[in-house]
Design a binder for these strands. Structure first.
Lengths: 331, 331
DNA sequence: ATTTTCAATGTAAACGTTTCCATTCTTGAT
DNA sequence: ATCAAGAATGGAAACGTTTACATTGAAAAT
């Protein structure tokens, strides 16, 4: 691979001048510039990003990190696409780390990212108390959190109004005539899980129904937990006539169990899920779901991050996007 | 951030010795080692991977690239998980690039990866003639291809027997009594699409049925193409009684259209899809599908890559995994 | 007692950039 | 004609590692 030195030699100038041309900084004579550009083309020169990064943290190295809890969850895939679209068009590459809800792995990845000297980080932290991440923020790394915040830290946050989304979903179920509405919740350590649970509870109470702890099951946010907890719910003495599921994966798990029991949706049991999917209409019947604008979350987060990289002193923003209830046929 | 120099000073030794301790290379006295380890701990030192990478291509820099065509496709997500699991446990970080079937973006990402001086690359190339990628292979970068090969190039390849998988699916449909079996195919430039198409055709012929071009539609492998092409198929004069879909996304699209037409599966129309999903059972009825061992593909690819990084001269392997027909209720 | 050997450590160059500072050269003002 | 200013360019240090080579010192061999 040709280096800047090779280019300089070929063009008969110093590396400093080549660097100046490349970075469009300060003055360089037009004829010199032409010579250099020619040499660059002929040698098919590509700047070495590693060297660039090593030399100066202060200069944008065009690499950002993305830390997601679970790449299997279609929600994060959409967030990722959003991030990717904006970062790619700003000439950033992303390094994606999936910690799979494993707090140990998250720590390792954060270390890796740090020693890669990334320009910035978009993360959905394992918890709101994430010490490692806080440390990085304090060290001055531009960070924006998605889906979950970071307590007592100055970071941009993009999230969705989880409480409101859950409230709407359950409110809709009640108004559609269901009375024994169960909820399968995700990992209680995840803030969004807790907010959704509160939305569920408040919607019941708001409609004059009782909050019945027997109708609420908490799992680990996984597909399997959806299968198992739905099974438990269907087996209690007085089973629910509707289920509100706490995320994507849980919804799919619950559906599997419902189909296994050969229950008809929505006549025997209704279901509305948190998280919409692009193929919700491929389900039979099409799924009623709370749609988080995942792609947009990613896009906004990307924009905020780039802003912050360019202006580290800008004050922090908390962006709360709306969740929308997509009413289809499962409720 | 503490550097190696700081550690060396604190421990009262030279940087060379610190480096030796870190890399477990050659001899260093136990007491010196202890001093150094103590200093490392106290300063919370973390090696700078960027500097490491810059210094020597010859030494593993513990970064590998992954190039996927479409992160929205659950198949690649599973492949990615497989890769991640093996690379993570070998202390590699991955930098993931999703080119979204966009050949221009693929090129950009390849340049980025190259200038990141990655140790190796796992890619599902846009085409078997991928010039950029071939160039990188020729430059000596360890590469393993998944899902698609690279013509006339020495690379390890992990793929699935697409022909056989398709054959089994269609054969099963015929034996189940369907006679007008349609096929919605993916992007014809993708080798696997072509192989699946051939498997489809040969299975028909093998069973004494005619290959009818009217029953075959080709799209761009996307969800949308599934929706639209299925619509077209349902509207031809003598519509099919079964559909074999060319991938994940197409399957979901086709299902959407079938549900829209309120056709009952499998009595009015059967469907079997290429690519299984962990939530195939969440569909109603549960989907019959050709299961590619996606996670295993990723895992194998990761293993092969690490092997190749450690031994660049090892000769190339083509690994063909079996596709398995999961018969459920949609056929 | 002298030489040989080898383990332990240090010195310094190299990787490919960016950037501060110095130098040269041109141009316009005095 | 002299000088100041500023444009254009070059020289060299720095970023944090690895590693070839040199040095030291002590144990082993003569």
């Amino acid at each position: 691979m040709a280096s800047m030195n090779d280019v300089a030699k070929k063009a008969g100038v110093s590396v400093a001048t080549v660097s100046r041309v490349l970075n469009k900084s300060s003055n360089v004579n037009d004829s010199t510039r032409a010579k250099i550009l020619k040499a660059i083309k002929e040698l098919n020169y590509q700047p070495n990003r590693v060297a660039k990064r090593l030399r100066s943290r202060s200069v944008s190295s065009n690499l950002i990190g993305v830390l997601v809890p679970d790449i299997q969850n279609p929600f994060y895939v959409d967030v990722l696409r959003g991030i990717e679209d904006v970062t790619a068009s700003n000439n950033y590459a992303i390094i994606m780390c999936n910690f799979g809800q494993d707090i140990e792995r998250e720590k390792i990845y954060l270390e890796v990212l740090q020693s890669e000297s990334i320009d910035g980080l978009i993360a959905a932290p394992a918890s709101e108390e994430d010490l490692e991440l806080k440390k990085m923020v304090n060290n001055g790394l531009p960070v924006v959190c998605v889906d979950r915040g970071l307590k007592n830290s100055d970071v941009d946050v993009v999230l969705v109004d989880n409480y409101d989304g859950a409230f709407k979903a359950v409110d809709h179920l009640v108004k559609s005539g269901y009375h024994r509405i169960a909820h399968i919740s995700g990992l209680p350590t995840i803030p969004s899980s807790r907010r959704r649970l509160r939305g569920y509870r408040d919607a019941l109470i708001h409609n004059g129904l009782q909050y019945d702890p027997n109708l609420v099951k908490s799992g680990d946010s996984s597909h399997i937990s959806g299968i198992e907890l739905c099974e438990e719910l269907l087996n209690i003495p007085e089973p629910p006539d509707a289920i509100f599921t706490g995320n994507n994966l849980i919804t799919l798990g619950a559906l599997e169990t419902i189909h296994k029991h050969e229950l008809s949706i929505p006549s025997e049991i209704a279901i509305v899920g948190f998280d919409d999917m692009y193929w919700s209409n491929s389900l039979n019947p099409p799924l009623t779901a709370v749609r988080q604008p995942a792609y947009e979350i990613g896009k906004r987060a990307g924009e905020l991050l780039i802003q912050r990289i360019n202006d580290p002193s800008r004050e922090c923003i908390q962006m709360i996007l709306n969740a929308e209830l997509k009413i289809r046929k499962s409720s």
